[in-house]
């Protein structure tokens, strides 16, 4: 092979890779969830803040006794986030408004393309076909990458045991209920039916139908339909989602889209680059040793980009 041809090939190869980087046609990022995935639609206009969902979750998941009882309204004084001892919490917003407070249940949203799963290097997380994002605590090494990766600040970390690190979060009652087609414990106990369980695809239609039928009741947006590539938990709200503690700055692209271009480069760098540069090096060395066949003109030509 002529040195000129070799460099030309390198240039073409490099351009192809560079173009491939910006191509959105890569498999990840376009996944719209499993067709039979289930989900829960949270209608915040219906929630009365009774915290029964918290109690039901606590008992179903056999979590430790709460710090204070589940009918203690004092917990609403501060915003809470899910922890290893409480996979779901209810927060109160808009207390000063004449229309009364709005309550928002927080738990793992069970993304179609979970960032926790992407960030986990031991593959502790699985997105099941039923829509739940579950984890295997046996392989978890406690690196807590998932806690940083999660766009909703969900995974909690069990700090009580230093020897057995476990990240804990809502699993949509996968082991005890979802696997058998049954609704999660929080949905079943909700007195107001603020939580609606069903196929995710059906829930999206249902949510838009509620907005259409009673436009004064809702803002025209279903949170979780598109955010970070879509989530199994969907929300309806009477006021802007930003007023209820939702992150409204999230992109509709899954978190993996932010890193997949970079991660796609890694195998190339690790496997192709050593061979490529060794080749160039060897070729250059070879040319140096047997370089008497070249005149000055051709050398100048070769150094052109």
């Amino acid at each position: 092979m002529k040195r000129r041809n070799f460099l030309k090939a390198c240039l073409i190869g490099g351009t192809t890779i560079a173009l491939g980087k910006t191509n959105k046609g890569w498999a990840s990022g376009s996944f719209e969830g499993y067709p039979e995935a289930m989900g829960v639609l949270v209608d915040t206009t219906r929630c009365i803040g009774c915290r029964s969902c918290e109690a039901a979750c606590n008992k179903e998941q056999k979590l430790p006794e709460p710090d204070t009882s589940f009918d203690d309204p004092s917990v609403f004084e501060h915003d809470r986030r899910p922890t290893s001892k409480a996979y779901t919490v209810v927060n109160r917003y808009q207390k000063e408004q004449p229309s009364g407070p709005v309550y928002r249940k927080v738990q793992c949203n069970h993304c179609n393309e979970p960032a926790c799963l992407t960030s986990c290097f031991v593959n502790a997380y699985t997105k099941t076909k039923e829509g739940a994002v579950i984890y295997n605590s046996k392989v978890c090494v406690g690196c807590r990458n998932c806690m940083i990766a999660c766009p909703f600040n969900v995974p909690g970390y069990d700090y009580d045991s230093a020897t057995n690190p476990i990240v804990k979060k809502c699993i949509l009652c996968y082991d005890t209920r979802l696997k058998y087609g049954k609704p999660p414990a929080c949905v079943e106990i909700c007195p107001q039916e603020a939580l609606t369980f069903g196929h995710r695809a059906d829930l999206i239609k249902l949510a838009h139908e509620r907005i259409r039928a009673t436009p004064d009741r809702y803002v025209d947006h279903v949170y979780g339909e598109k955010e970070v590539g879509g989530t199994s938990w969907l929300y309806l709200a009477p006021v802007g989602f930003d007023k209820l503690g939702f992150d409204t700055t999230l992109s509709n692209d899954p978190i993996i889209s932010n890193v997949k271009d970079f991660l796609g480069m890694v195998p190339m760098v690790l496997s192709i680059w050593p061979a490529l540069f060794s080749g160039i090096h060897l070729l250059a060395k070879h040319e140096e040793q047997g370089g008497h066949g070249h005149d000055t003109d051709s050398n100048q030509e070769d150094t052109k980009p």
Binding site: P66, D67, T68, S69
Partner: peptide, 16 residues
């Protein structure tokens, strides 16, 4: 028991 009413008035989580 379900609502852990015996814990009422205990220190809320956020206090910690």
């Amino acid at each position: 028991a379900f609502y852990s009413t015996n814990r009422k008035g205990a220190k809320p989580a956020h206090a910690e």
